[in-house]
Design a protein around this nucleic acid. Structure first.
Lengths: 191, 191
DNA sequence: TCTGTTCTTGAACTACAGGTCAAAAATTGG
DNA sequence: CCAATTTTTGACCTGTAGTTCAAGAACAGA
């Protein structure tokens, strides 16, 4: 009962995510969020409580979407090395393609809120670790398939690749495609 | 002639740098800067013109200090691999040691101001490229000294190591020492 | 159609960001 | 000591951040 919502909360969270992604947490105002979602400021506060809470939902969505995308992409046909290289290249290309460079929301959050918002940091950590897990799984699958040497430490490589991804998405703010693709080539050499 | 300055501009820039580093560009207010430097808001504006201009000086100082530190550290006795590994480990340890995690000012700037402040991005790019140059020089020295294989592409390795450094300094916000040191081990394996 | 409930709207409010300015203070040269 | 110059101080200003709230609108059930 009661008056029905005038908007889809999930959609609003997705739109808020885009805005936080582009402008950063501190750089996004309630007015920005109202404009991005098409929902009045008052309604947003009624529905989500505060800017910080809405950001939390946006972060979670970011992690979830990224995780699904990663898993699907890694498990398309190909060797582990091919798939991982293609994945890194995809991320870089997406970063470079957009009309505006905005990097990675998780990395921005880690740097912007590090040391002053432990809950946000934990959320970033969760999504990072999830990705590391997907990398490690794919490498182990490669070992079972015979396209990755048995001696490779899947877990170490997975952590290392995650680190490379983070680096790439920051460096995509300042450097261009050829440079980044050469970095990818060097990074996947260990597989 | 005229009334003498009550503060050392260079010192104030250094203090401003610390503040921007800890709180980010958007997160630092003129009041914060006045408190950090011990200089009145009015005087700061008189001396530096605007928050953005002071930030520019702070960024330049950050690059200069980092560059000098890097060059000195890389050229202490040891093989290229030893020195580069020690350098990455040093950065990580510094990041982890502080009372507050604050990552890398250059990376924060790239993410926060990317796509809306081309001049800041260029400054970050300059300091990144300077570091890449130092890495490449040190690797080539290693090749002359015989501790790095001739086949290694010094330039590609230098770019790759820069990328690794950036990744590490972001991941230092969310992960702990052992994890990061294992990433370093994996990264320097190609030398 | 009256009631209770949930949502929307727009105004309102406090605090602070970012910056400006006028007046006074501290210096040097004449 | 006076003039010119440069800095300091602190008040002041405009705009916006982040949030709250009162009033009304849209529903379901009795």
């Amino acid at each position: 009962m009661g008056r029905p919502k005038n908007f889809e909360p999930d959609v609003a969270v997705a739109q808020a995510m885009e805005t936080f992604w582009t402008k950063g947490y501190a750089g996004t105002s309630p007015a920005d969020l109202a404009e991005a979602t098409g929902v009045g400021k008052g309604s947003l506060y009624h529905a989500f409580g505060s800017k910080r809470e809405l950001f939390g939902k946006a972060l979670d969505l970011y992690g979830q979407v990224g995780s699904e995308m990663t898993e699907a992409f890694l498990n398309e046909p190909g060797t582990a090395k091919e798939r991982l290289r293609a994945y890194l290249a995809l991320l870089v290309d997406i970063d470079l393609d957009g009309p505006v460079r905005r990097g990675c929301l998780a990395a921005s959050t880690a740097l912007e809120l590090g040391g002053k918002d432990p809950e946000a940091i934990r959320a970033v950590q969760r999504m990072t670790d999830a990705t590391i897990g997907l990398f490690a799984d794919r490498i182990r699958k490669g070992q079972r398939d015979g396209d990755v040497a048995k001696e490779v430490d899947a877990d170490a490589q997975a952590h290392f690749l995650m680190n490379t991804v983070v680096g790439l998405r920051v460096m995509a703010q300042t450097h261009d495609g050829p440079v980044l693709h050469r970095i990818i080539d060097t990074a996947v050499a260990g597989l």
